[in-house]
Design a protein around this nucleic acid. Structure first.
Ligand SMILES: [Mn+2]
Ligand SMILES: [Mn+2]
Ligand SMILES: [Zn+2]
Ligand SMILES: [Zn+2]
Lengths: 167, 167
DNA sequence: TTGTTAAATAGTAATTATTCCTAAACAGGA
DNA sequence: TCCTGTTTAGGAATAATTACTATTTAACAA
């Protein structure tokens, strides 16, 4: 277990959240995960430790953590919510084949700003880049055809390098 | 009506889709829309012309158009799918208050490319930037507090200008 | 023009993810 | 230890979407 219990406890206290075993286990599982799991995947992860636990508790807990700002919700498609305990600014790479989401950490992407032509009274508080495509194994298995039926895909071909000072 | 019927018909033919009145109306409504409507919003839009139409037909039609690559699905949150007939590369500005989505068209954003540190066998086919915040009227009505319970929000503060040659 | 046929439509039922409701359990402070 | 509001668990309810199926129809060919 890499995440000290007291760290978690302090974060909960800082948000006015009670430190229950279920909540701790759920948050800990999410902190250790890199897959942006769904509520049900987290449930499957912690259920063995808590045979009485309800899936409802996972939803309730994720809602509480999200409201407190301890976790984020990441959406790929509209089918189900996926969660992320990584609060540092980062972006995502989404495989249209296996629906996997991996973190994209490139400081250059954190320098984008208010684009041209938006309403001047709109206050942007965050942004996130979603890169889509096919991972290696999905390319091998399903061929390299682009799945046009996947949600959110815009036909921008990506090539060349990022612009701006490469910090 | 700004979109000629024959243009639509040809697009359908080019995709092997039959040109039915319902399908034409749905696609036409989406082409004219700038709000990225849901299936139900489109249904409400075209239902008056087709009192017998089923919501199911709207879903079926949107699925067919999406599979053919004539439209895209845009997701903000996981609650419901929203659609976009604008195929030109563009990005989105999402209000966390009223859930509105407006197009962001800034050529500089179309030059981003393969970020550092991703698996080298991953083939990126597209990307999209989602800017989030509060629109003017939502700022006025609900105050300017950031809604942490909203999905997908990462705490990147956006300020300064875009990098790269400003084409 | 007419007939043929696969695709599209409409109506209904089913599914899935998520939320709502409520009573019991419990964490944290007095 | 006791209190009290929060959390949990279980079940029911909701909402979006998909599945099933009979009927209709667009597109094509004769
Ligand atoms: Mn992430
Ligand atoms: Mn758009
Ligand atoms: Zn994959
Ligand atoms: Zn708004």
């Amino acid at each position: 277990m890499e995440i000290p219990f007291n760290d978690i406890k302090q974060k909960f206290q800082g948000c006015g959240l009670k430190t229950t075993p279920q909540r701790t286990a759920i948050y800990d599982a999410l902190l250790r995960s890199t897959t942006h799991p769904t509520a049900e995947e987290l449930f499957a992860e912690v259920a063995p430790q808590f045979p009485m636990m309800s899936l409802n508790t996972v939803y309730y807990t994720l809602g509480a953590l999200r409201t407190s700002g301890l976790i984020h919700e990441v959406n790929i498609g509209h089918t189900r919510a996926r969660f992320d305990a990584n609060l540092s600014p980062h972006h995502h790479l989404i495989c249209l084949g296996c629906q996997s989401i991996v973190d994209v950490i490139d400081p250059r992407l954190n320098r984008l700003t208010s684009p041209a032509g938006i309403p001047k009274d709109f206050e942007i508080t965050s942004y996130q880049v979603a890169f889509r495509g096919l991972c290696g194994s999905c390319r091998r298995h399903t061929g390299r055809s682009i799945n046009h039926s996947s949600p959110g895909l815009h036909p921008t071909t990506v090539k060349g390098g990022l612009h701006g000072k490469s910090s």
